[in-house]
Amino acid sequence: MAIDGVNTELLARYAPRPGRHALLPDLTPQQQVALQCRMLHREGYNDHIAGHITVRQDDGTYLANPWELTWGELTASDILRLDAQGRVIEGDWNITPAINLHMDVHAARHDVSVVIHNHPEWGSVWSAVGRVPPIYDQTSALVDTDPVRYDEYRGTVEDGTLGRAAADALGPHKWALLANHGVLLVANGLRQAHLRAITLEWRCRMAWRVELLGGGTPLPAAVATETGQRTDANGFPFLWEAMAREEIRRDPSVLE
């Protein structure tokens, strides 16, 4: 099975030898999105029914999680298909009124296929204080740039004007802290989106703990940048598959 956004040469070098088990069974796009939601929910993207993931498909449609379900309970059959205007064209649930934020980002960023917005546990802390957390450890450095800050919170993003303002604030960047709100990030595939999402939440949590103890010494900027360029661009080998397997072991119905 191929997950987009990965260094395929690196995976091939360390692929299981003949007779060994595959890292994962073949997965449909809907199963991949459901697993992504489950994995990120466990990492702190768990603000009840808030938050949404959209993934552009080759035919110009988008897969998305439904409004009514938490990221920790949905299954592959719950995943919706949307048209380019964000209207449900396949599926039994509703889509969030804030989907306009995603459609605006997708329309502006043809270089990305995945958009994630949520109010994660630790990212929301730093968005509330309007600071970008320092990088205090290697895991916090797996993405090579700082998130941008959007400092003007004027309401929820289902308002079209406010959603477009948040999308404009992201600009060409990989991720953003939305003041008094949450986080917004984009990626060229689910693997890269997962790495960016968990790196941001880890970085926010680690920095809070370090500063609670009085502060520490951040990684040298050059080291952090080199680490992030290597891992964010090529994908962290086998990480997405390992976390997906854990979710399947916990609840095989996620694939149904």
Rank of each mutant, 00 (worst) to 15 (best):
L200N: 09
R109Q: 08
G214R: 02
D47C: 04
V223Q: 07
I248P: 15
A165V: 13
R13K: 07
H117F: 02
V157M: 00
R245I: 06
S77P: 04
A207Q: 07
E201D: 10
P29N: 05
E9W: 12
A233D: 12
L219E: 10
A176K: 01
Y150V: 01
S140A: 11
A197P: 15
L212M: 11
Y45K: 04
I3F: 14
D26H: 14
A193N: 08
D144A: 11
G51T: 01
D58M: 07
H52I: 01
I116V: 13
G214K: 02
H106E: 04
V254M: 04
R154F: 00
P25W: 01
T217G: 04
L10M: 09
D59V: 13
H41V: 01
G155T: 03
V183A: 08
Y62Q: 01
L101C: 00
R196N: 06
E226W: 11
L184V: 15
N46F: 14
P252T: 14
D232V: 09
G5P: 15
H52D: 02
Q138H: 13
F238L: 05
P220V: 08
H102L: 00
P172W: 03
G155W: 00
V223G: 02
R149E: 07
P220E: 11
V114T: 12
L195G: 05
H106N: 04
E73V: 15
Y14P: 07
A166E: 14
R13N: 07
T145I: 12
L170G: 08
Y62W: 05
D232N: 13
L74A: 03
L35T: 06
R20G: 10
I99E: 00
H110D: 12
M103I: 01
Q85G: 13
A84K: 05
D4I: 04
